[in-house]
Design a protein around this nucleic acid. Structure first.
Lengths: 210, 210
DNA sequence: CGTACTTTTGAATCGCATCAAATCTGGTGG
DNA sequence: CCACCAGATTTGATGCGATTCAAAAGTACG
């Protein structure tokens, strides 16, 4: 399938002006593949067209923290200005990405008002989401973080998990064991309803920290 | 002192075009004063001219997490597009802020290329900083978070704290007791050199998690 | 069908939160 | 100038919750 056609189907990409599309590099990625590493020289802004890409950083002891999870849309936005990437980008599902050279991207931002607006909305959304994650990671207990996640990432008190629980645990700053146990407890006391990938708030909104 | 003159002295503000300055509202703030609260309808983008403002969110149990600390420069950037503020803004030191109505701000972004560039650089920096904080909060021990802070916020392996240790603890997602104790231990084993508000990495870079 | 990974449970340990309290600090008003 | 107060700093004791290590069962995929 022609990737130019593929792009048309993605809402986020509708705003990209033709002259920028012309210089984009299309690339298919397999699960587990690394797009760039911390310290690599910048090669532009990326955009997920299919699959999922994660920005991660690893501590020396091996535990990794997921900074961003992209399923469709831009990532590595900060790279427009810096000199080197400040985290790793790894495909967690097979798919495809587009790479836009920084110079052309900046030029397009200067020329196309629609594109610029879409870009700024995207950045604002990114900031907002990161703030929510900081707030969540500031919570002390697993139960609090889980409920906060459902509250802020979900709609109508429920989320559909698009990732494994192990990955979710990393996103919540927990070990997977702690997540499993907390989920079980929350389900037992009626705070949460857990059905496979669907997690919903129960009626009994337990006082998590009286 | 005329605030228009005051602005000139701030690097961040040099890029603001005259027509936007004209509609800015200058406001002095006392320490402890609240600028806006979570849920308030948006009243534009703010900029710290003097003093310090913090964006915080409070959990039901009272513990608060500091989402952003602004000492000179914009904050509440995400507010350009949303409908309501998603956190509280509290002055932690007396000072002054400027408020820019969202409409005029967006107009200026569309007109002035220099201003636009500066704004995007600012947003990119914000994203980068938030990612660093997420990564830090993902670390499990107090020692790791402290060292990470000095590494990523400091220059040349040292930071000058501009806030109380209690506030620093909140930023690190710790209780102040845990911070004090961890600092003491790190100083004892030579990992850190602590002198009042100056915190530097020592020569002995202890393996924090072997 | 085998292999790699996730999911799940168990037991022991460690670090942080919590509660308590004493000291120190800067700032206010008498 | 000093007494006083609110807040920050510091230390101690205790308990809880998450990490860690270990291992079994389930599951997806070539």
């Amino acid at each position: 399938m022609d990737w130019q056609t593929l792009i048309e189907s993605q809402a986020v990409l509708a705003s990209i002006p033709p002259e920028l599309r012309g210089v984009a590099e299309y690339r298919e990625i397999k699960a587990g593949e690394t797009l760039f590493r911390l310290g690599d020289r910048l090669r532009g802004v990326f955009c997920v067209v299919a699959g999922e890409v994660r920005l991660v950083r690893r501590a020396r002891n091996g535990t990794e923290i997921i900074l961003q999870r992209s399923r469709g849309g831009f990532f590595a936005e900060a790279s427009l200005y810096g000199k080197a990437y400040h985290c790793d980008a790894v495909a967690s599902q097979s798919g495809a990405v587009l790479r836009f050279p920084a110079q052309a991207f900046r030029a397009a931002l200067g020329t196309d008002a629609m594109f610029r607006d879409a870009w700024m909305v995207h950045l604002a959304h990114e900031v907002r989401q990161l703030r929510a994650q900081c707030e969540r990671l500031g919570l002390k207990t697993a139960a609090q973080r889980i409920v906060h996640y459902v509250d802020s990432e979900g709609t109508d008190g429920a989320v559909r998990l698009t990732e494994s629980r192990k990955a979710w645990a990393a996103e919540l700053g927990l070990t997977h064991e702690a997540l499993y146990r907390a989920l079980r407890r929350l389900q037992a006391d009626g705070t949460l309803e857990v059905n496979a990938e669907r997690i919903a708030l129960g009626h009994r909104k337990a006082a998590l920290r009286p």
